[in-house]
Design a protein around this nucleic acid. Structure first.
Lengths: 161, 161
DNA sequence: TATTGTTATACTCTATAACTATA
DNA sequence: TATAGTTATAGAGTATAACAATA
């Protein structure tokens, strides 16, 4: 109908590449997430920290930073903010006073529940055109790609020891 | 084996979310692309511009910027660089001297061929764990998600007029 | 001397706003 | 007055480097 519609489009050769779509969509996804967390008075990184600590106390800040893939110097500010709001606790390791042990406290656990709602909403909005099965397929494909290039994406074994 | 291995991992609840994987992988994809294009002396945006112009001359710079989703002020520099290297030509529209018509010239077409090799290499490295059929599935899913939220991802109709 | 956490610095990216010329 | 393109400015975000305390 409108002969100019193709003028608004990305080049067909780019649309044909899964890698291009992945890059564009992933970036959009990240921006969307950041905006929604900002709107809630937090950042996406706060979610990552709380989700990580929900799996257990950490003996050093460095392991948190490494697991989440953020710089250690950046993590300091994130933990400061979470601590100020009473969501985590830091305390020095008595055996090695350079280290800070970090753990989640009840208020943090409650906030994590709120964060999960935000994440579910984002995902649901974003993946709206896909049904449950298709989302599972997408997840499987992405997880394999992610695990292949970064061991941080390899799901942890349930240790028997 | 190593009891600390799960310490390096992202939280399981994040790994379980396709949206999280999409955001992380997409960002990694974009960064990887930028680095490889930088290494070749260009930027990913140069590829976008050439790929777009390969589909036909443009009557204004604004349609290029809008289609690629970059700011018009940013496009100026990209076109300057491509013009300096003799890959595109700009000329004023005689009917409206505010406008610049932009088209690809042979050297640009040759460079585009090089860019395509880079993109194919990136994609192949990135999607290494997926076979052809799985890549097609991934592409289909991503395209539907992309088209749903942004008409620039709706593949252009082959016009009959 | 090396490591943990912290603070300070510098730089890149990009969004916004001004500005010029044409209409 | 509005639009196309251009240039200049400013601010956010982040990577790097320096620093203090402890080992």
């Amino acid at each position: 109908m409108n002969p100019d519609m193709s003028q608004n489009c990305l080049p067909a050769e780019m649309l044909a590449r899964p890698a291009v779509l992945l890059g564009r969509l992933g970036t959009a996804m990240k921006m969307e997430s950041m905006e929604r967390f900002e709107a809630a008075g937090f950042s996406v990184y706060h979610y990552g920290v709380l989700a990580l600590l929900d799996e257990g106390e950490r003996q050093t800040q460095a392991t948190i930073a490494d697991a989440l893939g953020v710089d250690r110097s950046m993590l300091v500010g994130l933990l400061d903010q979470l601590e100020e709001r009473g969501m985590i606790e830091r305390r020095r390791d008595p055996n090695d006073r350079r280290r800070q042990m970090v753990k989640l406290v009840p208020a943090g656990r409650r906030q994590l529940a709120e964060f999960r709602k935000i994440v579910e909403k984002i995902e649901d909005d974003f993946l709206a055109p896909l049904d449950e099965e298709e989302r599972a397929t997408l997840h499987d494909l992405l997880l394999r790609v992610a695990a292949h290039r970064d061991t941080r994406f390899v799901p942890a074994q349930t240790s028997v020891s």
